[in-house]
Computed example of a mutant assay.
Amino acid sequence: MSVTSDADPKLKRRVARRLILYILLFSSIITFLGTSLQLYLDYSKDVTLIEQSMEQIESSYLPSIINSLWVSDHAQLKTLLNGMLQLPDMQNLEIVQDGEEIIAVGSPASQNIITRTFPLSYNYRGKDIHLGDLMVYASLTGVYNRLLDKVLVILGTQAVKTFLVSTFIFIIFYLLIGKHLETMADYARSFNVNNLESPLTLQRRSKKGVEKDELGQLVVSINQMRLNLKNSYDDLRYAKERLETEITEKIIAEKDRARLVTAVENVIEAIIITD
């Protein structure tokens, strides 16, 4: 009797492939979720910075712009607008009077923009005089480009990290489990009634409690099965030998009985003839 499995090498390869696949799949899911969360937080942070820039324009620049516009100091207005253009992601600034642009800095953008309009009113002798409007255009293109760069960096670093972690886990798995599974498979393939005396042993470092872990318990179970098979086989062989002995003795007894019957019949015939 022997236990063989031609599919064992393929099975081991499939287990290894599935292990790597699951590691990569799980790492990819975690990377995707983590990257999505990080990108969302970065996007919210950049948009918040743009909103803060808008508030800074309203609180710090607007009074100076109104005063310069009141005295028609276009040079000062342009200087102020250029200063505002240096704020994060500012794309274009315009001062409009009666629907006509009187001064502008930056480059106009047609998409991915955040627009704010600030009315420019000058208080003259208790009356608010509307001088025009300040149009502020902030572009989200820079935000998207930074997010794209960050995605590429994150994906690159995560790919390297996933590869290293997967390789490390695979090596640890092989050293702790895989090579011992191969030993068990080889033992099972060579297992037969002629080598029931050989127990299964694993080459493992002697550590306290190693016999009580899953592999240790599996080895104990396999060796217990081996002993049970050995005892059953010994009992079966003993029963077979005893049965053969009984059959032989019965055959001999039958032959002796036949010879005895023949001898008795011969004696009876001799007596009859003598009479």
Rank of each mutant, 00 (worst) to 15 (best):
K12M: 15
T262C: 00
E246G: 01
M54F: 12
Q217C: 09
T157G: 01
K230M: 15
L49K: 12
L155F: 08
L260Y: 06
L69S: 05
V151I: 15
L200H: 01
T274G: 01
V71S: 13
K255Y: 10
A7S: 09
F32E: 03
S60D: 12
Q76K: 14
T262G: 11
R204N: 05
L148I: 11
V153W: 10
I50G: 02
L134C: 06
D73L: 11
R13S: 08
H130W: 03
K240G: 03
D234F: 03
L19D: 01
L25R: 01
L69H: 03
I103A: 06
F118Q: 03
I129C: 02
Q217D: 03
G209Y: 14
K207E: 15
A270Y: 02
L196V: 06
Y144N: 05
E265V: 03
M54K: 10
V264I: 15
D235V: 06
G83T: 10
I29N: 00
L24V: 13
Q203V: 07
G34D: 04
L215H: 05
A270V: 04
N195C: 07
K12A: 10
E182R: 08
A185P: 00
L175N: 09
T201S: 11
S121I: 12
D275N: 12
V136Q: 05
V153I: 13
E269W: 01
I252K: 12
R259K: 13
M90Q: 11
V165G: 00
L175G: 00
M225K: 02
K127D: 09
I172V: 15
H74F: 15
T157N: 06
S221C: 04
R259T: 04
G34Y: 05
I102K: 11
A109L: 07
E265M: 10
L37C: 00
D235G: 07
W70Q: 11
L181I: 12
M135D: 02
L25N: 00
Y43F: 13
E182S: 04
D42S: 08
Q203K: 12
F173E: 04
N194S: 14
I273G: 00
I177M: 07
